[in-house]
Design a protein around this nucleic acid. Structure first.
Lengths: 195, 195
DNA sequence: GTCTATAGCGAGATAGAC
DNA sequence: GTCTATCTCGCTATAGAC
């Protein structure tokens, strides 16, 4: 089957998402034009609309697929039984997952304001599900007496904020290895919730 | 001294900064137009340029004055002598200061990407000075044996990220008082760096 | 599936009257 | 100091040829 010259459906879609993710993370959704994305992909702006409904739909798909992947990755992770082991697993998973996807993380946290109301609600629900994972671990550990956490929900917010902050300073060329970064955060999280 | 009708230099300037701060925090710098700010102030867009050189200068002034105020407020705070007391003072100060200025905080963290290179360097230097305050407290405490912190710099990043996260969930109408929120964060910070 | 061309709109910033 | 009017530019999104 001959294919029309200039037809690249299998590669333009992924390239579009990759270019948009990189540009949105670097400059912000509102500051990046469709023309700029198209130039990065190597097509004209109009051609992008074969793959997305509009710019807003592109942002939503990037954020939704990131959070879907985050939840799926956690659920398939082999875990121990006790709350302490679960907390260590969560801490190391969160640091590792976020360091592997700095652009997607940046967008998921910074571009909530630019979502349409309906899209915002969908993304917030996914984020809330992830926060609840940690909240449940902390609550279980507190019930077992392994942790001293008066307010599981707000403690979960605090821990997630601390862990996610790693993306603002970590660089692969830096002094610390990823394993050392995991250890550093696990040490602080373990003590912060300890009895 | 008669004043020209329609002349309001003393109030338009502050109103411009207040309107810009609220709108930038809510919708993002790139998504807010000068016309929208002018409408909020109650003047035409052209009149704004009597007070600012351009939109970029407006953003820079908002961010710089916020960080100047942050550093000045810390420096005039009465403090104890030991590292433990200094850490508690810093924690409570940071939470209180940030809860009082949610819009300014939001802009200072989210709009770095939209600063011109020279402006970015100036803002980053101020932020770095503030991080160093906490870093020095942690280093001193580690030297005294009061804290167990292997890496003062990255521990400071982690603590600041955790504390600043309070602005993402705290609401005045919520269940917790500000004093309770301060206590919650101080409890976690104290343990996280404890020996 | 991609192209060129463009409709339709709103942006930042300036000029000059009052 | 603020107004109206406007310059110039870039934006999202679509239409229709290939």
């Amino acid at each position: 089957m001959a294919r029309t010259s200039g037809s690249h459906s299998e590669i333009t879609g992924p390239r579009l998402r990759a270019a948009a993710q990189a540009l949105f993370a670097r400059h912000g959704y509102a500051a990046v034009s469709m023309r700029r994305i198209a130039a990065e992909v190597g097509v004209q702006a109009g051609a992008l609309y074969n793959y997305i409904p509009d710019k807003q739909g592109l942002l939503f798909e990037l954020m939704k697929s990131h959070l879907d992947e985050l939840l799926a990755a956690w659920q398939t992770l082999p875990k121990g039984v006790g709350a302490r082991d679960a907390l260590e697993a969560f801490t190391r998973f969160h640091v590792r997952f976020h360091l592997d996807r700095p652009d997607a993380v940046f967008i998921a946290y910074m571009e909530l304001r630019n979502l349409d109301p309906a899209n915002f609600r969908a993304i917030e629900a996914l984020r809330r599900r992830y926060e609840t994972v940690l909240e449940d671990i902390l609550r279980q550990g507190a019930a077992e007496g392994a942790f001293d956490v008066a307010d599981s929900k707000h403690a979960a917010f605090a821990v997630i904020a601390m862990l996610t902050g790693v993306t603002t300073w970590y660089r692969d060329e830096g002094r610390l290895s990823r394993a050392e970064v995991e250890d550093l955060y696990w040490s602080m999280v373990r003590k912060a919730v300890s009895a």
